[in-house]
Write a protein that binds this DNA or RNA. Sequence first.
DNA 1: GTGGTTGTTTCGTCGCTGTGAACTGTCCCG
DNA 2: CGGGACAGTTCACAGCGACGAAACAACCAC
Lengths: 175, 175
Amino acid sequence: MDVVLVRWPSERARRDRLVGEGRARLLLVEGAGEPPLPTDLLEDWVRVPADESEVQLRIEGLRRRAVSLRGAAPELDSDGVLRHGGGWVPLPPVEARLMAALIERFGAVVSREQLSRSGWPRGAPGRNALDVHVLRLRRRIASLGLAIKTVRSRGYLLEAEAAPLGGFVPDQREA
Amino acid sequence: MDVVLVRWPSERARRDRLVGEGRARLLLVEGAGEPPLPTDLLEDWVRVPADESEVQLRIEGLRRRAVSLRGAAPELDSDGVLRHGGGWVPLPPVEARLMAALIERFGAVVSREQLSRSGWPRGAPGRNALDVHVLRLRRRIASLGLAIKTVRSRGYLLEAEAAPLGGFVPDQREA
DNA sequence: GTGGTTGTTTCGTCGCTGTGAACTGTCCCG
DNA sequence: CGGGACAGTTCACAGCGACGAAACAACCAC
């Protein structure tokens, strides 16, 4: 996902075209011109002339926004609210801690021991407690298009599904 | 939905707390400091000293991002009239103060303690008074398409039913 | 007085958590 | 191939606490 540099207001037409294409853009506001209020999340602006470092920082910021919008990683509040793809669900304390550990290693395997330590910092209850909480977590986050995959005898892995909204969600056992 | 101004890097801890709470923030980058790379979509930054107009533009940009992610926030005037989506309802004093706290953090969790302090600045009555007022507030604002969601053992969260999908309102100044 | 606002009590309901047990699927050993 | 041993999934249940809701009483404004 690249960020396109656009002069403003002289290249207004080009900017509008990029909006329609859903591409990230950084407006270089010339002279005393007023930057436009953004019409989507993939736009930023900077007054020129500007430091090269400032331009680079804003470009990198836009890249991150674009990645975030592609549904890369969900976000977890300090209040136990999990947000992803425009929706959110509240997570109870234990499941919030488990989810925090999974998000920290989003897309990678987290061992049962690590999960157990995250979920119960002062010692885990019975062995089955983790399984049950993973099950409950799975059901809670399914509506957000998130899934916890099992890697047998290794641990669990959190991932986002390709089409979170409107798409059919296949049963994991059928895959 | 307020945008919080945070000095950077001197108020780093405060910024991190706001990230955890899911609130919008504008970093005022002091001196030669480097702004952090954003961890979510509700952050922007500006080097200070800066024109007041630039700060205002960035605040407005953040507000629009927040609207895009969480829907438009209702407005509460000083006479206790709550307006949203073309309709309005009058709110009695206690409920108006509770609603003000919820609007300030629109879309994010507000703890029971914070609500209690907002509703009764000079000391809260019994423990259940808050529950009852939340119940009454819920019924009053339902007709406006607003809902107060419970995040168990964490607090409450104000949300608008029909969140606009994707786009912003077109920029009026461009016409 | 009338109606709206506020606070309390009381009770019902629901969510969170952990346990035990039944069940499925995989791998390995003989 | 059959029999286990493992790993993991799912359900049912119980205890507890947080929250929801109704009813009631006191109070205030008009």
